[in-house]
Design a binder for these strands. Structure first.
Length: 549
RNA sequence: GUGCCUGUAGCUUAAUGGAUAAAGCACCGGCCUCCGGAGCCGAAGAGUGGAGGUUCGAAUCCUCUCAGGCACGCCA
């Protein structure tokens, strides 16, 4: 059990014993704003003051007297009504030892044991390349999945391929136009030409592979073949991009696989629940019943399913595959969350089974100028260009440096050229320094301890050393919070503060000192632990841990 | 016009309704005879766009307002 929940329970026990009525969930235990204020604090006396009509300080003193936990050495009631808690040295050493033995297990929990989760992200339309805008979804979804796995969930990553839409059709028609022109049999251009140079390239690639075989086919058949070719080409390119971004999906789920009656069946179920009505030749989902401003079309008057119906069917399918819940990572331009939730509710699912994470747009800056992008105008920067320019580590770190709901300003000049202003170097440098210290220790023939039994931990008593130990102790709580709030950017923050603690320790405590060999060993063990913890945290956000820089 | 998101130090950003709003960058002042100075320590700098309200307590919740972004198709 996490230490914070333990403190809450202990406090609740005291209130029960005293006959003070306060629900467990109203007991606030939080990290104080400043390190001098301890490792945890509670505002319980403030909450009780009004009910009991007593001074907060008196209540605080009374609670402090009753409070006893082996992990807590000092319980400090304060005149303003707070109670501060300080970890005991024994607890700090216990955490240190667990971290050293199994770093990943140390920061994980069994919260989600036995539960299956599907994280769906990116799912970009396969009619164009991944861009820096929809690319933001990739590290967010991947890190959320990593965090869920850390909390014990069995987690799969899935990419939904929208291969049945009008956009795919439009792309195919444009490719057809270019292909026929290339084959000296020009046809009139489609009403709407798909933008982007890659469209014409697709036509040429097809001809290179298949020759002039298109000419022998009827128009519809030719367009269909070009569609298959174009989509599979774009998808394999996206796979390559994501691969270089160190992101791997367990499954790539094509919408077409639902077009075997499953979508129709989903529609019938909704209809049977009385939330569908025929109007003007189309079938509408009566979302106004749920408070929507207007109803939504499910089946168009031409008989084709809308994107919404397809997505409803897809989510039904996901939940029927046995996942306890789904996490969807969506761009802010996706606006059908509520209709989707209402539909799932109508189909008998619980609304909590769909958790959506919305992220805002990305603004790119170069030379202090915003780089304007517009996908419909065919003017955008691809994820591939970003990867080539700044590399996957910096890209992932910057993508995760703001909360999802904030617009992200991505400064290419700072990100590239290994500019030290980029926070990723601060963190990776900490890791490199750890490695450097170990190399130095070996160079002067000091045996590097591997187990805590080999050293005298009580030699670690400098404030900077204790600060690192306290950070170790709190780390599982920080990650639990990042996971439960589906906020991957908190991990980059946790990395920053740990790196900061390490750099301070490094400046204040010289590790290698041949005149104090026992203390050197204790400090080396601390360095090794930091290195291990950083390495696990880096893997959570998918960045590399460099031995040297 | 309607809906959603966002306005915090010169800049980029933190802050599960709680303590004197926290960091980094830039600026200023210190720190390498010693494990990588891509670092550390210190100083200065905001009362959270504005106005009300709820609360013992608000950057956080509510109302109004100003500013920016996105979405508002029988597109996906």
């Amino acid at each position: 059990m996490l230490i914070r929940s333990k403190i809450v329970k202990t406090l609740h026990g005291i209130t029960e014993k005293k006959g003070w009525e306060i629900p467990l969930e109203n007991i606030v235990v939080e990290q104080p704003p400043k390190i001098e204020m301890g490792d945890f604090a509670t505002t319980l006396p403030l909450a009780l003051a009004r009910v009991l009509k007593r001074k907060p300080f008196d209540i605080a003193k009374e609670i402090a007297q009753e409070f006893s936990m082996e992990e807590i050495s000092t319980v400090q009631p304060l005149p303003n009504g707070y109670i501060n808690f300080f970890f005991s040295t024994a607890f700090l050493f216990t955490c240190f030892q667990s971290l050293l033995e199994e770093p990943k297990q140390y920061i994980s929990s069994q919260e989600g044991a036995g539960k299956k989760v599907l994280v769906e992200f990116v799912s970009a339309n396969p009619t164009g390349p991944l861009t820096v805008a929809n690319g933001r979804s990739a590290p967010i979804g991947d890190t959320i999945a990593n965090l869920l796995e850390l909390q014990g969930y069995q987690c799969d990553r899935e990419f939904f391929i929208n291969d049945m839409g009008a956009k795919a059709q439009k792309l195919a028609a444009s490719v057809f136009y270019y292909a026929m022109a290339e084959l000296q049999h020009p046809v009139p251009p489609p009403d709407e030409m798909y933008p982007g140079d890659y469209v014409q390239t697709l036509a040429c690639d097809y001809i290179q592979k298949e020759g002039d075989s298109l000419l022998a086919l009827p128009r519809e058949k030719a367009i269909e073949l070009l569609k298959q070719f174009s989509l599979s080409t774009m998808i394999s390119r996206m796979k390559e991009d994501l691969d270089d971004f160190h992101i791997h999906f367990q499954s790539w789920f094509p919408e077409s696989s639902l077009h075997n009656g499953y979508i129709q069946d989903t529609f019938n179920r909704l209809k049977n629940q009385g939330v569908v009505e025929e109007k003007e030749g189309a079938y509408w989902f009566l979302t106004t019943k749920f408070g929507d401003e207007k109803d939504r079309v499910l089946i168009r008057s031409n008989g084709l399913a809308t994107y919404l119906l397809g997505d409803i069917a897809y989510h039904r399918n996901k939940l029927e595959r046995g996942y306890d819940f789904c996490v969807d990572v969506w761009g802010a331009d996706q606006s059908h969350v509520n209709p989707l939730k209402w539909a799932l509710h109508t189909l008998g699912f619980c609304e909590d089974q769909l958790k959506t994470v919305t992220f805002q747009l990305v603004h790119l800056f170069r030379n202090n100028q915003e780089v304007k992008m517009s996908k419909s105008g065919g003017n955008y920067i691809t994820l591939r260009e970003l990867l080539n320019e700044v590399g996957p580590d910096v890209s992932r770190f910057v993508y995760l440096s703001r909360s999802n709901e904030q617009h992200l300003n991505f400064d290419l000049d700072i990100a590239k050229n290994r500019d030290p202003k980029s926070p990723v170097f601060y963190a990776q440098y900490a890791y490199t320094r750890c490695k450097g210290i170990c190399r130095e220790a070996e160079a002067v023939n000091i045996d590097i301890p591997q187990k805590w039994e080999d050293v005298d931990l009580s030699l670690l008593k400098d404030p900077a050393e204790l600060q690192v130990l306290r950070r170790f102790a709190i780390m599982p709580e920080l990650l639990e919070r990042a996971c439960s709030s589906l906020a991957p950017h908190l991990v980059t923050q946790d990395i920053q503060i740990l790196a900061n603690d390490f750099h301070s320790f490094y400046e204040n405590c010289r590790v290698i000192d041949i005149d104090q060999i026992e203390r050197t060993k204790a400090r080396l063990l601390l360095v090794i632990s930091i290195e291990k913890l950083l390495s696990v945290l880096f893997s959570l956000i998918g960045i590399h841990a460099p031995e040297r820089m």
